[in-house]
Design a protein around this nucleic acid. Structure first.
Length: 450
RNA sequence: GUGGAUAUAGCUCAGUUGGUUAGAGCACCGGAUUGUGGUUCCGGGGGUCGCCGGUUCAAGUCCGGUUAUCCACCCCA
């Protein structure tokens, strides 16, 4: 019988138990942060109805969708009617439209689940990955404070994750759209193409972007290009950006609206007590996705800018227009946890030798003394200590080796001497030290250890 | 989807101008007199050299095809 090579689909992330512990800490921290800011959890099915998921909006995304089909349906030659979700925003829109009358608005939800995209695999690009989303969805209207709450949560969460300093870049799409409109570029397609180019400013540098915009068919005259390049170079705090923008004195109403909104959001962030070091205005943040209509965000790690955006989102004026006639504006953001975790792991900044969830291994010295081990394990478990009972009767050395590899820090040894004395030997495998402890003090001793 | 590179052990890779039974490090398993691991020493298992075909006395090595992977672009978390 031939052996099938064990392997996973490229673009998936699978962890060993000790890495999984660290990943779980990330999930826990993110969840707690979201809940701290008053967001409530929902989950939606990984599989959605095809027609629900693939509203006619999806041009580029549609090529990356995994269809799902039963073998029976396939055998009958039918087209797949199901598909895997490629983000959490579209399912949210469906969810809100479907349950509109049972939800309290503004609806603040968080959702931490895996999504699927048919990407060609590359570092930092996954086919299955976690998104950690928060969104606020209003009914008919949604105030601008929500646009400030979103980065406030993210600042809180990323600080709590303890992965180094980061900056949330904030902009407002109306500013550039208005600016372009003021220069006579009002084709939505043309504007989108220009914004996509603008988005590459950090990656390619000002020179190349300017060159592309000048030579390509973007409909920009020299004056427009000059103003645009000056505008997207603006970056910094409220004073350094919004005041300069006002000085441009652009007459377009959309431009003014975007400017006022950005100003208000930056001000609200101050009120919310967000560390001014953790966010900035950056007019080059445009976001390729065209469903964002106002505020947009991108989060970069200051020490590892090459990782790219690990958390981005924005405001959309009408979330669920494909599913309901109600007007449901929203604002939200998504942490790309899998990419973030994978990149941090590759950079070696994660603790790869974290202890697992098991704190103690009760070893077995001799089969004739096994009952003492069982009682000891039971006692430790009753005291709330995560305890594994070794049952394989190997040499002590092997049992220690096992514990080390499994990320268990403490070993309890119950040999003849200990049983006679009514004690247990407690060994700290990290420190290499051990102490004999009375059995009835064992749980307390372990509890008190680091 | 477009372009480029690579394909040898579980992982990272060596393999000289084609030449006998294909190597190293790490990992894994076992041992160094049986109540102490993560260090050291010794030993061991594991590869139809991605797949198909061609050239040759002889192919891991050269040629063609194919598949897969990786990188860049596109797009994104």
């Amino acid at each position: 019988m031939s052996i099938i090579k064990p392997r996973t689909m490229p673009g998936t992330m699978e962890l060993l138990p000790r890495q999984q512990v660290v990943h779980q800490r990330f999930l826990d921290t993110i969840r707690q942060g979201f809940e701290r800011f008053g967001f409530q959890q929902i989950e939606t099915p990984a599989i959605e109805m095809r027609d629900v998921l693939l509203t006619k909006s999806g041009g580029d995304t549609e090529k990356q969708v995994y269809f799902v089909q039963s073998t029976g349906s396939l055998a009958q030659g039918q087209d797949p009617k199901l598909a895997l979700r490629f983000d959490l925003t579209v399912p949210l829109a469906r969810y809100v439209a479907q349950h509109e009358h049972e939800l309290a608005f503004p609806f603040r939800r968080y959702q931490i689940q895996r999504v699927y995209r048919g990407e060609s695999a590359q570092r930092g690009r996954f086919r299955e990955f976690y998104q950690c989303d928060i969104d606020v969805v209003g009914k008919d209207s949604l105030g601008l404070t929500a646009d400030a709450e979103i980065p406030a949560v993210i600042a809180h969460v990323f600080t709590a994750l303890g992965i180094g300093s980061f900056t949330i870049h904030v902009s407002n799409r109306k500013i550039l759209r208005g600016l372009l409109a003021a220069h006579g570029i009002d084709s939505e397609e043309q504007r989108a193409a220009i914004l996509r180019e603008v988005d590459k400013l950090d990656k390619r540098g000002r020179g190349r972007v300017e060159e592309t915009l000048r030579t390509g068919d973007f409909g920009l005259d020299d004056a427009a290009l000059a103003v645009l390049m000056d505008t997207i170079a603006l970056r910094g705090d409220r004073a350094a950006t919004t005041e300069k923008l006002r000085e441009l004195d652009v007459e377009d109403p959309t431009f003014r609206e975007g400017l006022d909104e950005l100003d208000a959001v930056l001000g609200a962030l101050d009120d919310l007590g967000v560390d001014p070091e953790r966010f900035c205005a950056n007019l080059a943040i445009a976001r390729g996705l065209d469903y964002y209509t106002g505020t947009v965000y991108e989060t970069l790690l200051d020490d590892h800018p090459e990782v790219g955006s690990v958390c981005s989102g924005g405001r959309y004026e009408d979330l669920a227009s494909f599913y309901t006639k109600s007007k449901l504006p929203g604002v939200g953001i998504s942490i790309g946890l899998t990419r973030l975790f994978d990149q941090l792991s590759a950079l070696g900044v994660l603790d790869e030798n974290a202890h697992g969830s098991t704190r103690v291994l009760v070893t077995e010295m001799d089969a004739s003394l096994a009952e003492h081990g069982r009682r000891c394990a039971s006692m430790l478990r009753a005291a709330g200590i995560n305890t594994e009972l070794h049952t394989e009767g190997q040499k002590l050395a092997k049992q220690f080796k096992y514990a080390t590899k499994a990320g268990i820090r403490y070993a309890v040894i119950l040999g003849e001497n200990e049983v006679e004395n009514g004690t247990a030997m407690l060994k700290d495998l990290d420190a290499g030290s051990q102490q004999e402890v009375a059995l009835d003090e064992l749980a307390a001793t372990i509890d008190a250890a680091d």
